[in-house]
Each structure stands twice: as C-alpha cells, then as structure tokens.
Nucleic acid binder design. Structure first.
Lengths: 192, 192
DNA sequence: CGCGACGTTGATTTGCCTCAACGATTGTGG
DNA sequence: CCACAATCGTTGAGGCAAATCAACGTCGCG
C-alpha cells in the first residue's frame, strides 16, 4: 500500500514497533495531484509536510520578471516543503507544485509534533533527515558559486540520473541557475 | 563560565534538568585558538563539533586557483563544522579556521550520540537546530542565484550586522560569491 | 624598518542574459 | 479528428555583470 513507502523510508533510519507503525499510518492522508497543480503558494502557511509516493513535485520562487527559480525537486521517496513555514507556521516564501501527475502523503505539522512526544525514535529520524538536508544544501551552495554552468549541469546529471531523464531541460536549467537558452547553447557546443 | 554559554544556548530550545546540565558540561572541552589557526582540513575526518564562545571561525573550500570560498561564519553562540564529515565520519570537504583569536567548545561526535541516548530532549534541540540551518541554507541558495552582487551585499549587512563590522571586506566578498576587486568597485559606485 | 595583507583602480575579457524569431511537439476544445 | 494554442527547444545579435590581470598606496605588525 502507498503508506508503506513512507514507513519503509523511516525504518531505514530507526526501528519502529508495530504500534508505532499503525500510529503513524493513522495520521497520513493520501492525495493525488495533477500536473501543474499547486500545493503551496507564497504567503500561504504550510500546514502539511509532503512525502512523494509517485510522480514528482518541485518547490520554487517567482522572481520580479516572472521567472520560476527551482529550489528543489522531490520524486518518489522524498520529502518536500517550505521548512520555515512548516516549522514556525509563518507565511511561505516558496511555491510547490506537481511536475507530473503524482501521489503524495500529507503529514500535518501538529500531528508530527504529537508523534515526536510519543516516539523519541521518530524525532531521531527527522533529526537525521534535517542534518542530511542541511549538508546537501551546503554542498549545493558551494557548487553554485564555484562551478561553471556546464559543470553544474554535469553534476546534476550525475547526482540525480533518474530525475535527469524525466525532467524537461527548462526545469534543469532553472535548478542549476541559468536560462533555458544558455543551457541549449551549452549542449550544442558539447556535441559538435 | 564559558561552558554556560552553550548550556544557555541549548536551554533556549529545550528544558534541561540539573543532571542533564552537569552531564553535558562533563563532555565539553574548552579550546583557545589563534587567528588563522586551522581546525579542520579537507580530507580530514572531523571528530568534534565546534561551538564558538568568543571570536569567530569560518568554514571554506579552496578552489583550483587557490581562491578561498567562504561557506559559513560562526561567531559567539554559533555551531560550525562539516556536517557530512561529522555525521558519517567521512573525509571532510571543508576547511575550518579562526578569523580572529577565539575560544571554542569541543563536543565529540561519539559523546553527542551517547548524550542523545540519555536525553531525548537534546535530540530535539539538535533536530531544531538542523532544521533551522537547512531553512537558512535554502534561503541562501535562492538569494545567491536570484540577487545581484550589490543586493547580496546589502542582504549580508542587514542579516549579520555584528559580523559585518568585524570582518575584512575580502571575506565578505568571498561569502557573497564575488571577487574582492568587484566588491570594492560596488562600494565606490555606491558612495559617489 | 621592511614585509605581507588589504583595499583600490584601470584595461580587457568572458560567461551568461535579454530579446526576438522560428520549428517541432503536445495537448485540447470545438 | 482536426485546428489552433501553448509549450518547448533552438538559434542569432547584442549587451551587461562580473572575472582576470596587473599595478599601486596604505597600513599594521614582526
């Protein structure tokens, strides 16, 4: 069943009792979303964390000129959200929408905090997740400022091969911080 | 006493019993470091997390051309480290050194994990810290790619006013991802 | 004192963006 | 099922933000 994917995901980090498992399951809600469907908008307060079962979501900002700047992709087995908004229940600064038709699990901020009280193990799991996310994010900052556009492209391809195959070029360009036109030129020059 | 600063820091997030406090204190080691003293080098495995009591540390990478790229500053009351290395006991990809003469507290990876077993509260504290660090890091990625050099400079000044006053211009330039020469030009144009 | 680190400035180059136009593909409503 | 719109990738011309390289003044410090 769909919820099992999340249980497996958590179990990879910490041990869960049968009780824990059914408790967690009871708080999850499955949701199907269609391509381009928006799940979170800027200034909105994010109540639920999103865990992707199938398909793919992305978080992004919209700049003055209307340009979408992708912050993160999340395909099967990944969490996504606006951490500031979720944690502090403040207005979000990110948008989140579906890149393809997707299935996701919702876990509310309130329920998660209740689960922490009941299961110190779960708190450990989310500590580890946050630490990993932070480390990856630090690495991305370094890469963003110290690599060229081509190097960032190759880096993305190597690190997320499955995403790389599915995503339109345009979104990859946005993620690595260049315009679609310039990515197109890079690829042309690469194969001449 | 110096260790109290860290206790206060933790107490801002979670409640600690007297027992907890003395247990934590027993694991801390105070260390004085001099300006430019290196605390962590690339490929080294980081055993201790660093909590700054006074002075200022920075983490950075060194690029092919020898250029130092600052990833993070940490002044009084901040943690700093190579999260990947610390968590997984893998070779670090960052250097850490002292910007000024500093005093820091060392907390070993192993001791911290033992403390987690004894104090679920502490695990909560570090979950919150990691989540905050991740959120801040995400925000920095957005700013890095979507703001101009001048805007990033003003952003830094506003967000870290105390650091801003102390740090040499060169290091601020490195942090916001430009050359010292270009920052110099920006400032000249700003005050004409 | 003399050296090294820092900030400044000029000249030149370059990586990447902007704007505009054009096929190819996708998808969608009539 | 076709026609038309929307989206995507591509290409060209031109422009700008920021890097590079080199030279020079200044200051703090050993």
């Amino acid at each position: 069943m769909k919820k099992q994917l999340l249980i497996d995901h958590i179990s990879r980090h910490v041990m869960l009792s049968k009780n824990d498992v059914s408790l967690i399951r009871s708080f999850l809600k499955l949701k199907k979303v269609r391509r381009r469907q928006i799940l979170l908008e800027e200034t909105e307060i994010q109540k639920n964390g999103f865990f992707v079962v199938s398909g793919c979501l992305k978080s992004y900002t919209i700049e003055k000129n209307g340009f979408e700047r992708v912050v993160q992709f999340a395909s099967s087995g990944w969490w996504i959200g606006d951490m500031f908004s979720l944690k502090n229940q403040e207005p979000a600064s990110l948008y989140i929408d579906a890149v393809f038709d997707s299935e996701i699990l919702l876990l509310s901020h309130v329920d998660l905090n209740n689960l922490y009280e009941m299961m110190p193990n779960l708190e450990r799991c989310f500590r580890l997740l946050a630490e990993n996310a932070f480390a990856a994010s630090q690495r991305r900052i370094i890469e963003t400022v110290s690599l060229t556009a081509l190097e960032r492209y190759q880096c993305f391809k190597k690190r997320y091969p499955s995403l790389f195959e599915l995503l339109p070029q345009k979104l990859i360009a946005s993620y690595i911080g260049i315009t679609p036109e310039f990515l197109s030129r890079i690829l042309r020059d690469l194969t001449n």
